[in-house]
Write a protein that binds this DNA or RNA. Sequence first.
DNA 1: TCTGGGGTCCTAGGACCC
DNA 2: TCTGGGGTCCTAGGACCC
Length: 376
Amino acid sequence: MAFPCIQRWCAAARRGRLGHVTEPWVLHVDLDQFIAAVEVLRRPELAGKAVIVGGRGDPTERAVVSTASYEARAYGVGSGMPLRIAARKVPDAIILPVDQDAYLAASEQVMAVLRSQPGATVQVLGWDEAFIGVQATDPEAYARQLQQAVLEETRLHCSVGIGDTLVRAKVATTFGKPAGVFRLTEDNWLDVMGSRLTIELWGVGTKVSRRLATLGIKTVAQLAASNPDDLVPEFGPKMGPWYAQLGRGDGSRTVDDTPWVARGHSRETTFQHDLTEPGQIDDAVRELAAHVLEDVAGEGRPVIGLTLKVRYVPFITKTYARKIPETSDPAEVLARTLDLMAKIEPDRPIRLLGLRAEMTMPADSREGHTPTRSGW
DNA sequence: TCTGGGGTCCTAGGACCC
DNA sequence: TCTGGGGTCCTAGGACCC
């Protein structure tokens, strides 16, 4: 299958660029403080102030921070932090409610700009980030031009990571923030990342970094040098070798722009006051299930699996799952969800903090695909 | 300090079959 | 009476990401 390479070689030769053949690069684009930036755009008077976006914008409620502006981050506020705590840390912060529609609209604008870049293959990862695959002789120049285009058309700043794999591009972006560009390849990966802790890797959190440490692996360099087989007893046949690969920054180099199709949908709520009465719980499950059904029905796809996740009072999560015969009948799905709910600790008093209802859809009703995590 | 809401994927262990 | 070994499917739970 040398044909595409020869074609590229010929094309390069035609342009008189032989000896400077264009290389395939992965770019990772990440909008800077995206949600806060969108809020500042429509309220310019907020520029330069400590802005915190979370929940319904009421710091007395149970909710967490979605995004904080850099000014608020200077006080130690970060996403995921309880809103109540954040408000205490920055007493004069401006606290705003989450407005998903506004962020989605801004996101679509940004993605349109990315797709309009010459030769770009765009793989969207979330509201505020995407991979871009591109052939370029000077990826930094390409990145700068891309940042300029995004800024001109959306008034939003972004950072760009350049890499020879998806993982390296993704990690590179953190060194480009804010509004910068950084390149991470096989050549400088260990120089830049080697002495850092494994938790700084994309896909390694507190639990896994702690388990790695018990194996004597604390730094990225140590993980990179580890034998993949040695990690199998602790992490299993897939995750073990995957972590070793992650330590080296290796993995897929392919940006996949196949349209995203969800595997399932879910809704979650946290109650402002714990639920204790069976009637309340019944109502909550019905309401949640109805919302998920709307999302599923909106795609015109059937349901094959149900999951209820129940958060009890001292932060215990219980899962109840059922495979069901494929159906598109909302009444049947609701009835089966209520069956599942009957399993919620019927025998002892309960206090519910929150509920999550999930519905999964058959794989063969999907047309697109996306790389699996272990594929990265 | 006390924990959102939307996702994805992996693993262990049990049930069941041959 | 006691028990191999492989495979698949399902449930529960966990971890991580934005």
